[in-house]
């Protein structure tokens, strides 16, 4: 079922509670009463159209209006990507880390030994993901904005043209794979090989959190790979192909 602008915000949450972290990423808090999506967006000064497309593509894996998404201004897209970065770094990763440590504290000696390894693995994973995010925010996004600026003003500096030639937008997503694979491995090790912890429920909570994080990251990567990159690539190509460059 596709989400439409006149649907009640509350009904959307009843429809799919996995959308909760997404709406908070857009700055929308609970307590929206009977307001529709359109009204909530207006109150928060959000682009309804963009919000809906993100909501729908997150809600239904088969719904991905690639062309339409590519039509949105880069600033909207990057704002959204930044907001999800913030969510991973400030909320999701610390939460999972805390849960692993909680489980370790409740375990016996044997359990603690394995959970210490899990904890270490996760903190290295967290570090890697943070570095990846920092690279995007410090290098990639500023670059993307300068490409957009050059495209908009029809004027590219020689320096930018040079940069485009030796560093295209496609180069930067190469490291996604490893981050995804490590998360997959972590899940599999907990599912298949971890000596069974005393607190099963807490262990399941950790797994569910990891599944949610994975789904969220996949969705995030899809926006980058299918929306951001093609959009930037198109502008890069236009700049490079201009006579005189």
């Amino acid at each position: 079922m596709q989400i439409t602008p006149n649907m009640k915000m509350a009904a959307v949450i009843h429809l799919n509670y996995h959308l909760l972290p997404l709406i908070s990423r857009f700055g929308i808090m609970l307590g929206f009463g009977d307001k529709t999506i359109e009204q909530v967006c207006k109150a928060h000064n959000l682009d309804v159209d963009f919000f809906l497309e993100i909501l729908n593509s997150y809600h239904d894996k088969n719904y991905f209006p690639q062309k339409h998404l590519q039509g949105f201004p880069l600033k909207l897209i990057i704002d959204y990507l930044r907001k999800s970065h913030e969510y991973y770094l400030q909320v999701k990763l610390p939460r999972i880390e805390e849960l692993i440590q909680q489980l370790s504290a409740l375990s016996n000696e044997a359990g603690q030994r394995s959970l210490k390894l899990i904890d270490k693995f996760f903190s290295e994973y967290k570090h890697e993901l943070s570095e990846h995010i920092r690279h995007e925010e410090d290098n990639v996004y500023p670059y993307v904005f300068s490409v957009e600026e050059a495209y908009r003003t029809r004027h590219a500096t020689a320096e930018l043209v040079g940069r485009i030639r030796d560093y295209s937008i496609e180069d930067y997503e190469s490291e996604h794979d490893n981050v995804e694979d490590e998360l997959y491995d972590l899940k599999n090790i907990i599912i298949k090989y971890l000596p069974q912890p005393v607190n099963t429920d807490l262990c399941h909570t950790i797994l569910i959190e990891l599944f949610r994080l994975e789904a969220d990251l996949k969705d995030h990567a899809r926006i980058e790979d299918k929306v951001l990159i093609p959009k930037v690539r198109f502008m890069e190509k236009w700049i490079i192909d201009r006579p005189g460059n």
Partner: peptide
């Protein structure tokens, strides 16, 4: 298990 980090953790566990 695909990654080296993952295989290392498996071997340690």
């Amino acid at each position: 298990i695909k990654t080296i980090a993952g295989l290392t953790m498996y071997a340690l566990i």
